[in-house]
Write a protein that binds this DNA or RNA. Structure first.
Lengths: 215, 215, 215, 215
DNA sequence: GATGAATGAGGGTTCATTCAT
DNA sequence: TATGAATGAACCCTCATTCAT
């Protein structure tokens, strides 16, 4: 009640109240942890460093997350969950397949490769085998939903003759494969041989769905 | 099995000499370490377990490898190095592209997916970012050589009209992508949705190079 | 139950004033702390749990007690102090020794064993060595007073020939010993071999002072 | 084999070999832990201090004991277990009850009160409630065996008329009670009022079994 | 060479205590 | 006065590495 007194109804830049500060801390911890986990891997990352990077005390982490593992899982959940809807939406849109392909490429380049989601997917790939629960969550909440949407659209494309390869319906992994490969490549070999991610994805799309105007 | 590894073909009962025993131990350690690293990841794997699995004392590991990291690097080196020649050879063979594609699929299924090389590649992908030296070795000794051979063959195919997509020469990653994807998928999601690796690779080859008889 | 603890006997609906509320909180904290200390021991008990059990915030504890140790000491003080008078009174009553013995047994069974005082005495025994101040308080305010009263009465009994063992005057501990033993036994071994506390105490009294009618 | 070379068949003061050194370390850890646990209680004792006191590194403790709790349990086991036989033997000896009583007093004063067993019994009393497994072990391997031997002898004494109180057969605790009380008293109040333990025990024996010559 | 007991730095986690609200 | 989020020192335990045998 007291803190409300500090909320100004007029000035937009009011001081954050306690709840907001707590939420901000939580976000800071998630961001810092993603950085550390990405840089060192789950096992080698130190919560001490996470705390330092987030600007909080070590104990504060445990106010928001049960343990290191829960923190890791929450990183994946909080950043990938909201993203799924966007992707499903894109697949459901009533647009030509070729246009859709371009949009998917753009979506990947901008919203995955251009953000920390890239790091999360990398983490998912690298640490997933040791976190079956997380892998299950990821499959259930992310992959299966995205693949379902993709399969539905691809089946329609097959029915209407937009595509001719039946295998694509069965293996939407073929659409994702260059993206996965790009994430891995850039993490390992970019300094030796830089990879133009957009071009790589575009090339696969061209091969799968025929040449289209560049997005 | 340990000490008998290098039995002479002539004298069946010759005891292995000291050098042979040492080499056998080294191999046992490498194999055990691969198992442990694969199962737990580099940071979480314990040299105690490696020693136990290899049937040697913990100290013995340090007689053969400077430290944990050197052991890891040696695993990759010793198992991938010899394999590169085989792949290069396949790409250089004077056979139709479609036949080559089938052979590459088979080679991957049999010699990578069916062996511990799958685990090494997975390890390379998951731990590589923390081992720049290793990534460099892998790029120099494995990837660039395989990609060079592939590019040469693809350029020839482009010249002779066997293929029409120029992008393939630029991005041989598109050929590797389904293999990488398969390795990751099976490590994470096979229990939810099993993946037929050969079919997946075959499908990509079909799309890239046109339908061919099953290998 | 919390705020209502001190309801006036006349005005049934009078709201407790601030002072009463504070005192009630203090009592709630003491009771909760006794529970937690009894269950886990001083070192392992968590003030978080004490606060939760008392229905107050963690910080509130520090408004009433300087620190964890002070809280512990105050538990002993507040529950044992008032009890001493009762015991002294019993020893001073002008009744036959055998009757007194029965009363002491009943007092112990009802007012110690049947209440949290049992837990306090146990705590005193288990944690006392680490809290010299508390042990001193306990000796000064509880034990020496009770023992003095007991010795006085026993000396009288010796003088009048009610008892013949001189040692009892010197070692009133012999009267307390079965009670102490019972508290420890029930805390450790009751599930293996339940102990009838009243019978045990009665038996010692019979041996010390001769058979008497059951209380 | 090499170390055996250092064993002299003639000189008795040969250097301890590896196995002996390990056993010595184990004993040192047990002794140090008993000191620390006695001084601070289980929860508050630091393994760091135990290691320092034992003259070993922290990790060494874990070569001999699974964890802090196992160390604690082993202290009790290793010091009390061997002692039980001695006590049983004393109870089974074919000697007059009064003589036996004197022997038991001496045994307690010398072998319990004069040794670290006193500390173990104290620890058992103070920490037992938090270690049900340990309490069970103690009941099964120590108490029930000692009590059985005591009950058998007391029943015989009852049959032959050596004693008249039937309650003693039922409650051998009455024999142990002064010992327990003495351990607690000396731990808490000896600086205010020192207790002559032998006299206290002797007095109870006198009351229970009649006056006897001092042992 | 081979062993495995010993080391001790390091990190995850807990929890008494503080303090801004 | 009451709150409970935040703090950070403390502590158990692990495990890569060493070294006496």
């Amino acid at each position: 009640m007291k803190p409300a007194a500090k909320r100004s109804l007029k000035t937009e830049k009011r001081l954050p109240n306690r709840e907001e500060k707590s939420a901000a801390r939580r976000e800071a911890i998630l961001a810092a942890a993603l950085d550390e986990f990405s840089a060192r891997g789950f096992a080698a990352a130190r919560l001490d460093d996470v705390a330092k990077r987030a600007g909080v005390a070590k104990g504060t982490i445990y106010l928001h997350f049960r343990d290191k593992e829960a923190l890791f899982q929450e990183i994946v959940r909080s950043l990938m969950g909201p993203f799924v809807g966007t992707v499903e939406h894109a697949f459901n849109a009533d647009i030509p397949l070729r246009t859709l392909a371009n949009q998917v490429v753009e979506l990947f380049v901008r919203e995955v490769f251009g953000t920390r989601r890239k790091d999360i997917i990398r983490l998912m790939m690298t640490e997933g085998p040791r976190f079956p629960k997380l892998a299950e969550f990821y499959y259930r909440e992310v992959l299966s939903r995205v693949f379902n949407a993709a399969r539905k659209r691809l089946q329609r494309a097959l029915d209407t003759g937009e595509i001719s390869h039946k295998a694509l319906v069965r293996y939407p992994q073929l659409i994702a494969a260059p993206g996965i490969t790009a994430i891995i490549w850039t993490g390992l070999f970019d300094r030796f041989e830089p990879l133009n991610v957009r071009e790589l994805l575009q090339a696969q799309m061209n091969i799968l769905f025929g040449e289209g105007r560049a997005s």
